[in-house]
């Protein structure tokens, strides 16, 4: 049952990525004028010799399907072309930065899932003051944009208290974690609050459900009821929202990396876009779409495994 669902989702994933890659590569040709001028970047008119060189290097004179295919197969082989503004291969540029970004996103995702679910469960199960505190705090945090949170955290924990560094990526694992703590908090805050609220709602709904009443009527211990009936049944919605949150981190990471001066692919995306370095932007756009789609598919499969009623279209 679940295997067929996985196969179906994998096929859908492949189609999605193919369409996205055509859109990303095609955007270069949709822009007015000669794509080569975009690839050079900057405001000034490039020399005809340079333009001709770019046409040759990027195979711009070939028909669209042929050049698209060349680009796509290059990407699949790990060759994303050359960056004109950095005078370096795109693969090398990404390789040097992706570690920081992945660590940042993993750190933030860990914060979101552990503290988001824990706070939601605390609010729902403990109720009263805990519920009020969590609801007020999470509503506040959801309203604060990432860049404001970055400034507030830097001011509070780096400038006033001096607990964490305000800038840079650090070297070595512990030093990097220390450097990434404030960025990860800034990135996670609003999503953490969102996951906490959804967890609270899902757990409260299970708490008052009839089947939990049945379990109580049979003398089963409350701690087991919480684990096996309440949290277990609330898990599917919590997992799918956590997945959306982690996917959202990818988009938010650019702002945070820029704000905290982290040398990651998010900051690279902002800088390349400013310099109109299209080869880098294309590669990063494709990478983002792939990551986004992979996370969503993984979450769908996980949710379906957690709740057998969920697979759309029926898997029986």
């Amino acid at each position: 049952m679940i295997a067929r669902f996985v196969v179906r989702r994998a096929a859908a994933l492949a189609v999605t990525l193919l369409i996205a890659s055509v859109a990303i590569y095609g955007a270069l040709f949709l822009s007015p004028g000669d794509p080569a001028t975009l690839l050079v970047g900057g405001g000034k008119e490039p020399s005809p010799r340079l333009l001709a060189e770019i046409h040759r290097q990027y195979h711009l004179d070939e028909p669209f399907p042929a050049s698209y295919w060349r680009w796509l197969t290059g990407m699949l082989r790990g060759d994303a072309g050359q960056s004109l503004s950095y005078q370096d291969s795109v693969t090398h540029l990404l390789g040097a930065r992706i570690g920081n970004t992945l660590l940042l996103i993993a750190y933030a995702a860990l914060l979101i899932v552990t503290f988001g679910v824990a706070l939601g469960a605390l609010a729902a199960l403990r109720g009263e003051w805990a519920d009020t505190v969590v609801t007020v705090l999470s509503t506040t945090f959801m309203a604060v944009p990432v860049f404001v949170m970055a400034v507030l955290l830097t001011w509070g924990f780096a400038v006033r208290l001096g607990w964490f560094p305000a800038y840079g990526s650090g070297t070595g694992f512990t030093d990097r974690l220390e450097h990434l703590t404030l960025p990860a908090l800034a990135l996670a805050a609003s999503w953490l609050a969102y996951v906490a609220q959804v967890s609270r709602a899902a757990i409260r709904a299970e708490l008052v459900s009839e089947h939990v009443q049945t379990a109580r009527s049979r003398g089963i211990k409350e701690s087991r009821i919480v684990r096996k009936h309440i949290l277990r049944n609330a898990a599917a919605p919590i997992v799918s929202v956590s997945g959306v949150a982690v996917a959202g981190l990818i988009a938010g990471s650019s702002i945070v990396e820029q704000a905290f001066g982290l040398n990651g692919v998010g900051a690279l995306l902002i800088q390349s876009a400013a310099k109109q370095d299209l080869a880098v932007v294309q590669a990063l756009a494709l990478l983002t779409v792939v990551a986004f789609a992979l996370i969503n598919t993984a979450v769908d499969v996980l949710s379906a495994a957690l709740d057998h009623r969920l697979p759309p279209g029926g898997s029986r």
């Binding site: 459900s209 009839e210 089947h211 009443q213 049945t214 379990a215 009527s217 049979r218 096996k228 009936h229 277990r232 049944n233 957690l306 709740d307 057998h308 009623r309």
Partner: peptide, 16 residues
Amino acid sequence: AAMIFQDPRAHINPLR
């Protein structure tokens, strides 16, 4: 004492 509830669809955990 054991209770038989009115609506078994709601009163039996759907996931287990």
